[in-house]
């Protein structure tokens, strides 16, 4: 039960993009088309779950026993970068169609602060339980995908709208829409208290 709460809290209440302001760049950058945003969301979710497990292992088996926790930023960044490379090679060799769908989004994830953010949050809050870590990672990924896809749907409609004031065209109106979505997600606040 607690696991489901952790998952829902990461996905909705503390939504990475809309409540924690993490991963805003891909949220703004890759949300022009619905199809691309689904691909990006799926890629981020996969990397986030695997990275959560991998950083959990490295943190508890290497960094803590050898007393080098202060290196965690550097280690995690390279771990994520390496993971992304590995996943890409694996998909390319064994799961061609998936590689075609996710391939171009994978390299973008290396410097995605949502992924690094979630693994840093993991070791802050759930450094003693792999199950909670995984639930948190999965929830974060699903929440990111949810926000990204909803936002892309709105932006696709917005493209056809000619009545946007000239000064607001482009980045500003995108920001305002994101702000309105963020207000909508504020409605989840207080629903789950951990």
């Amino acid at each position: 039960m607690q696991l489901i709460l952790v998952f829902l809290s990461a996905a909705l209440v503390n939504n990475l993009v809309l409540a924690r302001s993490l991963g805003v760049c891909p949220f703004i950058g890759v949300s022009k088309q619905l199809k691309a945003s689904v691909g990006m969301g799926a890629a981020v979710t996969v990397v986030m779950v695997i990275a959560s497990a991998a950083t959990f292992a490295i943190f508890n088996l290497v960094l803590v026993p050898f007393d080098v926790v202060f290196l965690h930023i550097i280690v995690f960044i390279f771990l994520i970068a390496g993971l992304v490379q590995l996943i890409e090679m694996f998909l390319k060799k064994y799961v061609q169609p998936l590689h075609k769908a996710l391939g171009i989004y994978l390299p973008l994830i290396t410097t995605n602060c949502a992924v690094l953010g979630i693994v840093l949050l993991n070791i802050e809050t759930f450094s003693d339980s792999i199950l909670y870590t995984l639930a948190h990672g999965l929830g974060g990924g699903i929440g990111f995908t949810l926000a990204l896809t909803l936002f892309a749907g709105i932006r696709e409609k917005m493209e056809k709208n000619d009545s946007i004031p000239k000064a607001l065209k482009g980045l500003p109106i995108t920001m305002i829409v994101a702000g309105l979505m963020s207000i909508a997600f504020l409605g989840f606040a207080g629903m789950i208290t951990l």
Binding site: L18, L168, P172, M175, G179, L186
Partner: peptide
């Protein structure tokens, strides 16, 4: 002061 505010203020400052 909440997360949505960041988006709004940034939008208008950019304009």
């Amino acid at each position: 002061a909440l997360p949505p505010g960041g988006f709004f203020v940034l939008a208008f400052v950019i304009v």
